[in-house]
Design a protein around this nucleic acid. Sequence first.
DNA 1: ATCGACTTCCGGCCATAGCGGAAAGACATT
DNA 2: AATGTCTTTCCGCTATGGCCGGAAGTCGAT
Lengths: 252, 252
Amino acid sequence: MAKDVPVNAVKISLELVDLLRELDGAGVSEVAKRLDKPTSTIHDHLRTLEQQEYLVKEGDTYYVSTRFLQLGAHARSRQKVFKIARPEINELAQVTGEHANLMIEEHGVGVFLYRSRGPDAVRLDTHSGMRVPLQTTALGKSIMANRPREEVERILDRHGLEAVTDRSITDREELFDVLEEVRERGYSYDDEERVKGMRCVAAPILNEDDYAIAAVSVSGPKSRMREERFTEELPNQILKSANVIEVNLTYS
Amino acid sequence: MAKDVPVNAVKISLELVDLLRELDGAGVSEVAKRLDKPTSTIHDHLRTLEQQEYLVKEGDTYYVSTRFLQLGAHARSRQKVFKIARPEINELAQVTGEHANLMIEEHGVGVFLYRSRGPDAVRLDTHSGMRVPLQTTALGKSIMANRPREEVERILDRHGLEAVTDRSITDREELFDVLEEVRERGYSYDDEERVKGMRCVAAPILNEDDYAIAAVSVSGPKSRMREERFTEELPNQILKSANVIEVNLTYS
DNA sequence: ATCGACTTCCGGCCATAGCGGAAAGACATT
DNA sequence: AATGTCTTTCCGCTATGGCCGGAAGTCGAT
């Protein structure tokens, strides 16, 4: 096994924490089985993380601690686009009645920074901090469409084009064609490419150099996302919100 | 130096992350100076954390990444008291106009799980995930007052009684006297013990064994927190909310 | 009582974390 | 341009401590 990271012990602990999140808590032996390491090694790591207060132990089960809440809140509030976009996203959710979202790109994946539920919003699995492949959301496509092609290539080299539903885009050239359209049109669609039955409209937030730093969207059930509402009304509302955010970003 | 944790490398990385949060981003040499380690060592750790996507690098500065947002959101939603209390806290903020808060204890410190700003709420530094010494808030006192004395002793042994303002309680016996009163009265006060000019009223959330699992509070400026509102109206509203939460917790 | 499945502890080996030193850049200042 | 002072980054050695096998506890079930 080639040495891939400078400090392997840290890598193990981080994988361990993320596993505990996925499993929603686990004991020593279960973690050891999943990571294919001896229980004694895992035990050492769990103890360390617990002593440093990054995990909590209840009985023989370890859980992710709220220490991460503090770090996460900091990471989010550090993004100036977050605090400027938040009121606009709330507004968007209210007037459309649906979900409204804010996404940024980080390490080549899409991160939901914030979401607001409108009065008619359906139940949905998206939550703050959720990470998804960029090409599977209208948000991600709006971002990629307004980045240099070579940067998008690098992201694809790193993450590939994993399909999430049977409608996901999986061909690289097809994706670039779509991105071209999106850039010209100014906003993007997602038609059940990530979640069955859901459609989505998104627009990018651009900086002074027309480089996408984020995207905003509205998403809802297919039944309500159609005809003029889908092709005219929602795009206009979203473009207006995106524009307000862009303006507020430059003058702040 | 005695070996204090099983995996020292992990400890270094975790301290590093927390330092980056405090500093709101930093370069290699600044971190190295603060942690009193060689730059080469710090460099190894920063690279590892960045490769694992727990940090982001912008130019020569490393920042905490939104990876923590996902972990934090999980850690919070894991607490059933959070999702049950949230609507009640929002309600409390609306009817009182002030800040309303939810706190739990973790590793012997108070953690703000959620807060809601009412229409008249003043600017305040509290935020989700914030960690404070228990004895410096009405919330913390409500929790400690409804825990076995030996458990409180253990917490104090570990964390001491650090003063935050000149009104903070610093004497152990004095604290236990206060806690005794709080338990009998059913709710607790904070009169500028953490933040100058702010007062706070809190009530515990108890489980079936009368063991405090959390606390709710309302906090506001001294000028509005006085006379009957402070001694009657707010305590009653908070006790009512706490009771609703307790009931919803048992039947769910 | 005996088992089984877990967590925890212990002690040793050798991979590797941590470090010093040097190289490669960045950025002023002269 | 050239020099000096900051960085960050790289490289390779060495002693240490991370990792592991195995044993000892712990708990519940049968």
